[in-house]
């Protein structure tokens, strides 16, 4: 496997890989059809992401990812107590290895409050960052978009504004990072993200079985390896196959406004319980939220798993496009 597959780049250097014009034209045509026939409700035939994992599914090798994190943080010079932000797209493979990396390297996990308690606690204990290298493995756990739900996060941002005594690593979802950057006056922090995959990376990582497959995967995933892996697992393709169809779920146009808010809230928080989703969208009638969730679920855009609603890997590209059409294109990755 290519050693340089996993490369960290500055967030502002991130560029979505270009997609072949024919595929863009196809996507535009499908979007136009959907715009002109908004009431048409199609139940997607794409495999639901709620299914149990199958044997023989593609999985990224963890070691190169761990190595890339080691290289990155070695470069950061551990004597320099700076805070590094790693901005990750939903379904990025880094989410699943970061805890392992932290325990292997002795970086201490910063304790975070329970999400449900963010809305009920009157005050939080003073946030003290450890004196040894520390990591926050998912910043969204300390945040709910609610007047009471941002207190812990704001205290954390204030704390890290002053130079901490030890290096820190903050793992943050791309949607949350962008929200914080826009609403909290520019985070002005060192933020890195994974370089997107191109067709060559798709092939060299063995994610794609052929060049044609790689191009298709690139078109649907926009270079996100986690999304591409989900499509690879959902649609079996052989190396000889020339006609490759990767069917993307479609976001139903009905209840567009509520669906927009629901999808955005789920992406911003990386998934929410029914209770917290209702609190975040408390100006929307609960029955509308429920209806929208069921509709989105039936189309394979969201799933309900472990008492959490979240956007599926297969539904993410469609959800992102849907939000972009409504001016909610609030993240580059």
């Amino acid at each position: 496997m290519d050693e340089k597959l996993w490369r960290w780049i500055e967030l502002n250097e991130y560029e979505t890989p270009s997609v072949p014009t024919t595929m863009l034209a196809k996507r535009w045509w499908h979007k136009t059809l959907q715009t002109l026939r908004p009431t048409r409700v199609e139940v997607s035939t794409a495999n639901s992401a709620e299914e149990e994992p199958k044997d023989g599914e593609f999985k990224f090798d963890e070691q190169p990812l761990l190595d890339s994190l080691n290289t990155l943080l070695d470069q950061q010079n551990q004597g320099d107590p700076r805070v590094t932000w790693l901005v990750l797209a939903p379904a990025s493979p880094v989410w699943s290895v970061i805890r392992k990396w932290a325990s292997q390297n002795g970086w201490q996990r910063v304790p975070m409050p329970q999400r449900d308690s963010l809305l009920t606690s009157h005050s939080f204990e003073e946030l003290n960052l450890p004196s040894e290298p520390w990591v926050i493995d998912d910043l969204s756990c300390g945040f709910v978009r609610h007047p009471l739900g941002m207190r812990w996060l704001q205290a954390f941002l204030r704390k890290t504004l002053h130079t901490p005594t030890s290096p820190g690593l903050v793992i943050c979802g791309s949607w949350l990072y962008y929200y914080l950057e826009k609403t909290h006056g520019g985070l002005n922090r060192q933020a890195l993200t994974l370089r997107p995959f191109d067709t060559a990376s798709m092939v060299s990582s063995r994610l794609a079985v052929s060049q044609a497959h790689a191009r298709r995967l690139l078109a649907v995933s926009e270079g996100h390896p986690g999304i591409a892996a989900a499509y690879r697992n959902a649609f079996a393709v052989s190396a000889e196959q020339t006609e490759i169809v990767l069917e993307m779920p479609r976001v139903p146009a009905a209840h567009g406004e509520t669906s927009t808010f629901v999808i955005y809230a789920l992406l911003l928080h990386g998934g929410l319980s029914t209770f917290l989703l209702g609190e975040v969208l408390n100006s929307i009638a609960p029955n509308l939220i429920e209806h929208s969730l069921n509709l989105l679920r039936s189309h394979g855009i969201v799933r309900y798993q472990d008492e959490q609603w979240s956007v599926t890997e297969l539904g993410y590209p469609a959800a992102k496009q849907f939000l972009a059409q409504r001016d909610f294109n609030w993240t580059s990755c």
Partner: peptide, 14 residues
């Protein structure tokens, strides 16, 4: 408090 209210509105253009 009022700034927090605006920042948490789903209608807000961030």
């Amino acid at each position: 408090a009022l700034e927090q209210i605006a920042l948490t509105s789903p209608y807000l253009q961030i």
